[in-house]
């Protein structure tokens, strides 16, 4: 079994190497624009961007991901992860990691959008992979259907991110983050790259248009007005029970104490 899989790996690895060698930044751009609504930031001086990115990579990333992004004992290979993964990880500040904790946390990005784009261009130049997108390129308002999106969300996302996208617990301290306030492009890139614990949702299993539906539903959930008063975090009965005891019974016991107190 091992031999078969390693054989297969070499068979796949061959073309990948060839492709990696052949693919210029221009063809990478072509692949990127073939994906729905995708655009790459590389409009001018792409090769400069790649070399800029490589410089940043060698300075800031290579100690973990290896000099040629081939990965190491503590960090995965970045060959073939595409510019979308870089845009997601670096653009949300998850990479570079602050410490080797269970999970890379979202924080203030270390690199500015220019540097992030350069890094993305460099990683995309290594091998083809999912390309980053922009908020403007995702016409979710036009192409999405929020009812369908809600159904897809509940089938594919709610088990980790909670029914209202508030996030939830995973094993051993890992967690699925809240999706509130997350921009459409970051959600899109997360779905196509499967960052960290999150699995990938390929365009074959959830079509680009269905992804836009999910985003449309999430944007609606983001702006969901409170129909019945304070939302209590939208995490279900735990906060409700707490409020019932503390505020509900608390106020009533307060009233009972007042009732039984002798008047002056």
């Amino acid at each position: 079994m091992k031999r078969i899989s390693s054989f297969r790996r070499t068979r796949i690895a061959g073309p990948i190497l060839v492709v990696a060698a052949l693919f210029t930044i221009g063809t990478a751009f072509g692949v990127a624009s073939a994906l729905p609504g995708a655009q790459t930031p590389m409009t001018t001086g792409t090769s400069t961007l790649v070399s800029q990115g490589k410089a940043i990579f060698l300075r800031g990333c290579s100690s973990c991901h290896g000099l040629h992004a081939e990965g190491g004992s503590i960090a995965p290979s970045l060959i073939g992860v595409g510019s979308a993964a870089v845009d997601f990880q670096v653009g949300t500040g998850r990479m570079p990691m602050a410490d080797m904790s269970q999970q890379a946390m979202q924080k203030k990005p270390l690199y500015n959008p220019q540097e992030t784009a350069a890094l993305a261009a460099y990683v995309a130049s290594l091998a083809p992979g999912p390309s980053s997108v922009t908020n403007e390129s995702l016409a979710y308002e036009r192409d999405g259907n929020s009812a369908l999106g809600g159904q897809l969300f509940r089938t594919n996302c709610a088990m980790c991110h909670n029914f209202a996208g508030q996030g939830g617990a995973l094993t051993n301290g890992k967690y699925a983050p809240s999706l509130m306030g997350v921009t459409p492009k970051i959600i899109y890139e997360a779905m196509i790259t499967g960052p960290q614990s999150m699995p990938k949702f390929t365009d074959a299993t959830i079509t680009p248009q269905q992804k836009l539906s999910i985003i449309k539903w999430l944007q609606a959930a983001n702006h969901e007005q409170n129909q019945g008063g304070a939302s209590l975090g939208r995490v279900g009965p735990v906060t409700e029970g707490l409020l019932g005891w503390v505020l509900g019974l608390g106020l009533l016991i307060g009233a009972a104490v007042w009732l039984a107190m002798k008047a002056k």
Binding site: T155, N156, G194, K200, T205
Partner: peptide, 17 residues
């Protein structure tokens, strides 16, 4: 689920569900 369309092996990448 819920699209109801059949699926090929190539539709899933490593890490996909």
């Amino acid at each position: 689920d819920p699209a109801g369309t059949p699926i090929k092996a190539s539709d899933l990448e490593v890490g996909a569900v």
